[in-house]
Write a protein that binds this DNA or RNA. Structure first.
Lengths: 158, 158
DNA sequence: GCTTGATCTAAAGTTAGCTTTAGATATTAA
DNA sequence: TTAATATCTAAAGCTAACTTTAGATCAAGC
C-alpha cells in the first residue's frame, strides 16, 4: 500500500479548526501519533485528522482526555488505522452513545414526573429523595450520586 | 403558608451526598440562597436540596456553573419556589435535554455511516471532511466546529 | 460551664485542559 | 540567498470548579 502522506502541524490545526498549540498538546499527551522531520518538526499522517475529530466529538460528549486516550488505545499507533480498526472503535463508542441517550431519556422522564409536577411535598419527590428505595440502607437521599450521576459518563468532580 | 424549616449546611451536604465545602462554595457563588443565624452560620431552606440536585444534574449534562446560574435565575431567590416556578424551569430544561438527545442521535447516525463504514478514502468521509459542503467558502474541513460541536451544549474550550 | 463537633472566613492549593511567551531553529517562496 | 513564515522547547499563565488549611467562633449535650 502507498505510504500515507505526512502533513505539518499547521495543516492538522487548520483542517480540524483548532489552534496549533492544541495539536501540539495532544501530541505531547500521546493522544495522536507523530514522527519528526530531519529538522525536528513534527510530521503527522493525514489520518490524524480523523483521530482529532474523534477526540473533539468525545470531549463534547463529556469524556476526559484520559478516557479518550483509553478509547483510542484500540487504534494502532504505529500504522494508519484500517477500516476494521475504526469499525471496532466505532462499535464500542456507539454503545456509549446509546447509553447516554438512554440516560438522558430516563432523566427526561424523571423530570417530567417530578420537577415538572411541581410536587413540593419534598419527601415524596423522587429527584429529591429516594427514601422509598434507599432509606433502609442509609440516612437519607443521595439519589443523585447513586442513581442518576452514575448513568452519565463524566462527573467533572475529583 | 407555614414557613419552610431551615437546615444547616451539613444537612444539605449529607442529603445531597456532597462535601460541606461544595455547598458553601455554591452559596458563595450565588447558586443557592441562604440566610444567617444569629451566630453567623448559614441556614438554608429545605428546598435548597432540590436546587442542588438540579445543579448536579445539569452539571452532568455538561452545563457550566455560569450557565446553570442563568437557568436557575427563573427560580425566585427570596421565597421557596412554587410548583409553577419549577414547572417553568422544567419546561425550558426539557427542551435542552431533547436537543441533546437529538444531537447524540444524529452523531450516532453519522458515526455509523462514516467511521463505522471505515471509509478511509478520507476525502469522502463526512466526519473528516465536508468539502462537498463548505469547500466553496473556505479552504478545508472544520466540520466539527461548524456542524457537530454547535449541537452540543458545552464546549469545554475557552 | 465545659467539651465536642460543626461551622466560619480568607487564602492558598489542586487538577484538567489549554494558551501564551520567549528565544531559537526550520522551511518555504522569491 | 534572503526574507518571511512556521515550528520548536520549556516554562509560565489561565480558567473553572473545587478542596484544604489554619485559626477562630458557634451550637449542643452532659
Amino acid at each position: 500500500m502507498a505510504p500515507e502522506p505526512m502533513v505539518s502541524i499547521g495543516f492538522i490545526a487548520k483542517r480540524t479548526g483548532n489552534a496549533v498549540s492544541l495539536i501540539r498538546y495532544y501530541a505531547n499527551e500521546g493522544l495522536i501519533p507523530s514522527v519528526r522531520t530531519n529538522g525536528g518538526n513534527r510530521a503527522f499522517p493525514r489520518s490524524v485528522i480523523r483521530r482529532v475529530s474523534f477526540i473533539l466529538i468525545a470531549q463534547n460528549m463529556g469524556y476526559s482526555l484520559a478516557e479518550i486516550k483509553s478509547l483510542l488505545s484500540t487504534l494502532p499507533d504505529n500504522r494508519t488505522p484500517t477500516q476494521a480498526d475504526w469499525a471496532k472503535l466505532s462499535t464500542v463508542f456507539n454503545q456509549h452513545i446509546e447509553a447516554k441517550i438512554a440516560a438522558l431519556t430516563s432523566l427526561k422522564t424523571s423530570l417530567e414526573g417530578c420537577i415538572g409536577c411541581g410536587c413540593l411535598s419534598l419527601d415524596r419527590c423522587r429527584l429529591y429523595n429516594t427514601d422509598d428505595k434507599v432509606a433502609a440502607r442509609g440516612s437519607g437521599a443521595q439519589l443523585l450520586d447513586e442513581n442518576v450521576q452514575s448513568q452519565f459518563l463524566v462527573s467533572h468532580k475529583k
